[in-house]
């Protein structure tokens, strides 16, 4: 099998049940923008065909599939071995992977093993006469930086939810890929538990609207106000680190430097003071609304619409008013 000269090799992440991760849309969209998307899917036996079809529907022109029992028990290494084998066949102009924990570690080991340069946490991918380069947003969105690598194809990890571009659906050419295991030592997976999705609310990462709550909610019970407004707006739920530390809400909802970075159309901050660590994770939101009883809260410096007032009167009134307007 020969691949086009402008092939971009895209590692698609799959869950243990074989489902393709949401990051696939943006990765294939970005790949189509700068070349021909060639997807690699690595699954446990019997799950590759379905994953390959999904990859095609998201824009993969070619799909290389690897089915391996090792992925169930061996952390990272089987996927790195598959990516090495795929790159050898495809000779891509760039390799793209999600910046999730699993995929970025595959990309990192792959870059070391192949001697290629690594560009991390890109928010966009583009090309010029010199080749493909990555765009990054650093220090909480205060700076934009373009980077390239010095030797061969760049290996680029892409921030989840950062790229909106979507590729046209394809009927892909699917080829099983032979992989010679490297025999590199790896950690053993002894158990897996899929996260339970509690509600029909959108997932925080990549959500178009986010309602976040902070210490100002006062208690776990008070945090229900965030849920109510999120449901009224069809938004995902976020939180400041203070609210997470206080036990109001699970850690996976944390927005900020050490949590999830979001850039939704609408970000509503309830009772969040807006420490720089929090702002770093939401400053690229299109519209920011903040309600806080402290008129000097730093969150107001970045808010497009700021309300100084009591959450527990303003938010119920807001929910009522939104409900009334819908009728």
């Amino acid at each position: 099998m020969t691949f086009p000269e402008n092939s971009v090799l895209v590692l698609l992440e799959t869950s243990p049940s074989g489902t393709i991760a949401k990051s696939a849309d943006g990765l294939l969209g970005a790949a189509a923008k700068v070349g021909t998307p060639v997807a690699l899917v690595v699954t446990s036996p019997g799950k590759a065909a379905k994953a390959a079809a999904v990859a095609g529907s998201l824009g993969a022109v070619y799909v290389l599939t690897v089915e391996s029992l090792d992925v169930e028990t061996s952390l990272t290494t089987p996927v790195v071995d598959a990516l090495v084998a795929a790159a050898k066949q495809v000779r891509p102009v760039a390799v793209l992977a999600a910046h999730s924990l699993d995929s970025r570690e595959v990309a990192a080991r792959f870059a070391i093993r192949t001697g290629l340069g690594l560009a991390l946490d890109a928010i966009d991918v583009d090309k010029d006469a010199e080749g493909i380069f990555a765009r990054h947003s650093v220090y909480g969105g205060a700076y934009n930086v373009d980077s390239a690598t010095t030797v061969g194809a760049p290996v680029i990890t892409v921030r989840q939810g950062a790229i909106d571009a979507q590729a046209e659906a394809r009927r892909p050419a699917v080829t099983p890929l032979e992989v010679t295991p490297s025999g590199k030592p790896s950690a053993t997976i002894t158990g897996y538990e899929e996260a339970i999705v509690e509600t029909a609310r959108p997932e925080l990462r990549g959500a178009s609207k986010v309602v976040s709550g902070g210490r100002g909610l006062g208690s776990k019970e008070g945090f229900a106000l965030v849920d109510d407004l999120a449901d009224a707006l069809g938004a995902a739920i976020g939180a400041s680190r203070a609210a997470v530390d206080a036990g109001y809400v699970a850690q996976r909802h944390q927005v900020g430097q050490t949590g999830v970075s979001v850039s939704p159309q609408l970000y509503v901050a309830l009772g969040i003071s807006g420490a720089i660590q929090h702002r770093a994770g939401m400053m690229t939101s299109k519209t920011i609304v903040a309600i806080n009883k402290d008129a000097d809260a730093p969150i107001f410096d970045v808010a497009d619409f700021a309300v100084v007032g009591d959450l527990f009167t303003v938010v119920p009134q807001l929910i009522d008013a939104l409900g009334a307007r819908k009728k």
Binding site: A303, A306, V307, V308, Q317, L318, I319, A321
Partner: peptide, 16 residues
């Protein structure tokens, strides 16, 4: 910073 209002009883409606 954009618009900033102090709640005087109708901030929820203005925000809506």
């Amino acid at each position: 910073a954009g618009k900033k209002i102090i709640d005087e009883g109708n901030a929820g409606e203005q925000l809506a």
